[in-house]
Design a protein around this nucleic acid. Structure first.
Lengths: 121, 121
DNA sequence: TCTTTCATACTAACGTTTTAGTATGAAGAG
DNA sequence: CTCTTCATACTAAAACGTTAGTATGAAAGA
């Protein structure tokens, strides 16, 4: 079940989403953002962010008081890899069935469909 | 990290894919299909299929000698739920960004793009 | 019948992910 | 200067997922 080097586990993704949104920030910033969603300990966030650093998703540098963490891979790159892995795992690598599924099953507005239609051209 | 009741873990999905493909079958059938891909123990498959039964993805009934397992949820339903969960988790529930991503990043043939264009109408 | 093969249940170990406690030292408040 | 607050490192346990061994009993083959 080894994951590729651009693939995040569930909680890691939650934290990366916060950091991508906030930009460079420290553990406390992320902790407080996560607290709004659910109960979590400060040290848990700290531990997770360290793991993300050793995995190469975050880089940290000394800040005024606490370390400042910043994403070291662009969101787009990471998301792309996760989509790729999902497509491989669930659709055996074929993107088209997923696409058709999304077009059929998800409620998309006329504007959204227009946008997709345009991007296909 | 609680998963919805239609969401499968990695190895569970591998087994379900075999059962969906084969239709009603016993542990040995699945075991042999999986063996073609990788080394795995018979009892591992047996254990996994039991787990899938308790989770409600397979139902088993007594067969001639061994139990016969059959899917208890259609593939389409389960896949749909997994896509839904992925979209929620990675794209915060918005299907459109995933769709655009797929259209942009995946190499799709002209024929496939045609088919997608047709299904949008 | 005796032996071998097979299916299942039970059990457990291992790996990974997630969570958080404790210790330590530095910074800030008084 | 002392006390409190905060950040980090270290440690570890809980939770989950994956894998497979062992025991048991049934069936098949001789």
């Amino acid at each position: 079940m080894k994951s590729g080097k651009y693939t995040l586990t569930g909680q890691e993704l939650e934290i990366m989403k916060v950091v991508w949104r906030l930009g460079p920030c420290n553990v406390r910033h992320v902790y407080e953002a996560l607290l709004e969603q659910r109960k979590i300990a400060y040290t848990t966030v700290s531990t997770m962010m360290n793991i993300l650093e050793t995995k190469g998703f975050l880089k940290k540098k000394a800040g005024d008081k606490a370390f400042v963490y910043a994403p070291s891979k662009p969101q787009k790159t990471v998301i792309r890899a996760m989509v790729r892995e999902f497509v491989d795992r669930v659709f055996n690598g074929a993107a088209e069935p997923l696409l058709l599924h999304l077009v059929e099953d998800e409620q998309l507005s006329k504007a959204e469909l227009d946008e997709i239609r345009r991007s296909i051209k």
